[in-house]
Nucleic acid binder design. Structure first.
Lengths: 357, 357
DNA sequence: TTGTATGCGTTATCAC
DNA sequence: GTGATAACGCATACAA
């Protein structure tokens, strides 16, 4: 696919010229300010920027003109003449999920202390080419750097964009497809901590839930580690693939009948589904069945929910990502490969000792 | 405060000229493309935009050059000459809260079908002037329209921006401070539905939790309605102001001893806090105490959580907001005032009949 | 201290 | 069909 943007991106046939009676009030420019203040554009500009070398009289005149005209400097034009490395782009999967929301928060905080503005676009399950468009918007805005925190972006797109602007991946280990793109990801051994938790509780037959690989590549790395760790310990295990259509009552019922005493879920939402199913089946948790989630973000980590889960370090991931992209922007060397950030186990009331047989 | 942006917005002392050995690969421009293709800028531009009047030969040459140079048109420069009506700005409070995350999702979906790109910036509890800066970024980008979904933006800023670019408020009824700025908000009578729910269950003494007014202006409108409705029904009531430092065990204990049998919380997080406190005090829910939340977004609406709450219609709010701003962009008349969107009551296991006295 | 002239990258208006 | 040239709004080196 050509990198050309579609020229038909005008929304819904809106003509740029505006509506019936023309533009209501054309945005005032620095020229207007200068005119109103009776000075040259240069002086107005200098006053605007608070630069030295402007007489008090003119400064005040310009300020008055600005007030009066409600003048807002056009950042676009500004950044055209002075390359501003002050904007970072954030490409998120979907702010509706706590993980991405918290990631955005950490990202904004970390970028803020470094003086960056953050512009973000979300890929709410858009088709691939729409994702490409969205990323191009960020690139077209000449953001100093871009952080991509969405597993659904095609590697070729990543490579294309990464070739032009410093880019860091979050939450996916892109080695295979894009070895040169640095990344930040949760420690793949995070899941092993959960395994050790349930193994210590005496469980000898556990199930792991998972979603389709294309929805979350990192999940599979983690799950494979968990699985091999389980087998090394001689614990029976199985993987259950779930999706939007999954009937959890059937699934949990089947697992229980097969002797499974612990279910480790791929995320906290799934854990709630399992808990609801267990309740529906009259299974006590953790008496008959232990359940653990994954992500551990609010509100799932709340005492009132009581879920045993594993908290992914969103703040740490965000900080590492900003750090990486900042280095890239400053043209400093970045270690090939990436950064892994470990999370922490949160033990609550949904896991307990394996039932006596 | 003056509308002048700080000129010290360069991140961390980065010199624009780049790192040690100069710019590694200066972004290629249309000039480079034209040069490489052996045509003029005009022809290159036309080819880029897919405009008619370009020979097949030249078209192909330009396309090849684009591929080779990894050329991405500079949107910034582009929108300088032709104001792009294809971008909507979204100013969010904090994507970490489910409400804003879901709002963003609905917003993106609705804007997408209308052909807009969505750029969002979040005001994660920034100080006021930082908010101003962020909004100015959006305004400076010359977005076609802006939707502000953050209660913490000062009215003067809103007015300033609204004077330049179509702007719609979400979640706050700005009549008082900005009567001319259209808004979309949850129905202020939403809370009354909860009142009727607990009243029907026989509760005669209820408490309402609330946060400080500056954090959520709309909340107070809702709560006032609830309160007057309670009094009209002769139900005893009190308002408990909560904050980050609140000790919920003390609060709930006090309420219970005072004979309160139902607590209606200002949001779902607070409801979880109340539930945890009740559990800690050995109070049964809903036996001794009924608890309800507010917002009703995932995962709070999950069966496994079992919380009685009220779902605010994020999708509806988002759709209405996009509709409004779209009309504004097209220069169509917009009814003064705003749009109220009602939500729906979700009854679950934390509310029940009032305990016999 | 102030004004003039030029450039940033792109599109649009003209001539050719 | 093609290529100069002038905007767009702002910053800035340079001249005054």
């Amino acid at each position: 696919m050509s990198p050309m943007p579609s020229s038909a991106d005008s929304p819904d046939g809106v003509s740029p010229s505006g509506g019936p009676q023309g533009d209501p009030q054309k945005a005032s420019t620095i020229r207007d300010v200068a005119l109103a203040a009776g000075v040259s554009k240069s002086t107005a500009s200098r006053a605007l920027l608070g630069q030295p070398g402007v007489s008090r009289a003119n400064l005040e005149k310009v300020q008055r003109a600005i007030e009066q005209l409600d003048f807002v400097p056009n950042q676009i034009a500004r950044s055209l003449s002075v390359p501003s490395p002050a904007t970072l782009g954030l490409f998120l999967r979907s702010a509706e999920y706590p993980f991405y929301g918290h990631l955005a928060k950490g990202f904004a905080a970390e970028a803020g202390v470094r003086g960056y503005e953050v512009l973000s676009v979300s890929s709410f399950d858009q088709p691939d080419d729409a994702n490409y468009q969205s990323l191009m918007v960020l690139a077209g805005l000449r953001a100093a750097g871009i952080v991509v925190a969405s597993p659904v972006v095609d590697p070729l797109t990543i490579r294309r964009v990464a070739a032009r602007v410093p880019l860091v991946l979050v939450g996916q280990m892109g080695q295979a497809s894009n070895p040169d793109v640095p990344f930040v990801a949760p420690d793949p051994d995070d899941g092993v901590v959960l395994i050790e938790h349930v193994a210590a509780l005496g469980h000898t037959s556990v199930a792991l839930t998972a979603v389709a690989p294309e929805h979350s590549p990192t999940q599979w790395v983690r799950i494979e580690r968990m699985r091999s760790h389980l087998e090394a310990q001689g614990v029976r295990n199985r993987i259950v693939t779930i999706g939007p259509e999954t009937n959890f009552v059937d699934v949990v019922s089947g697992l229980h009948e097969a002797g499974v005493t612990a279910v480790l879920c791929n995320n906290d939402f799934a854990a709630l589904d399992v808990l609801a199913a267990a309740a529906h089946l009259g299974l006590s948790v953790p008496g008959d069945l232990s359940v653990a989630g994954f992500d551990g973000l609010p509100p799932f980590d709340h005492e009132a929910v009581g879920l045993t889960t594993f908290r992914v370090p969103t703040a740490g991931l965000a900080a590492a990502a900003v750090d990486l992209v900042h280095k890239l922007v400053r043209d400093q060397d970045v270690e090939r490969g990436g950064v892994f950030v470990p999370g922490e186990l949160l033990v609550s009331r949904t896991t307990g000792p394996a039932p006596a047989r």
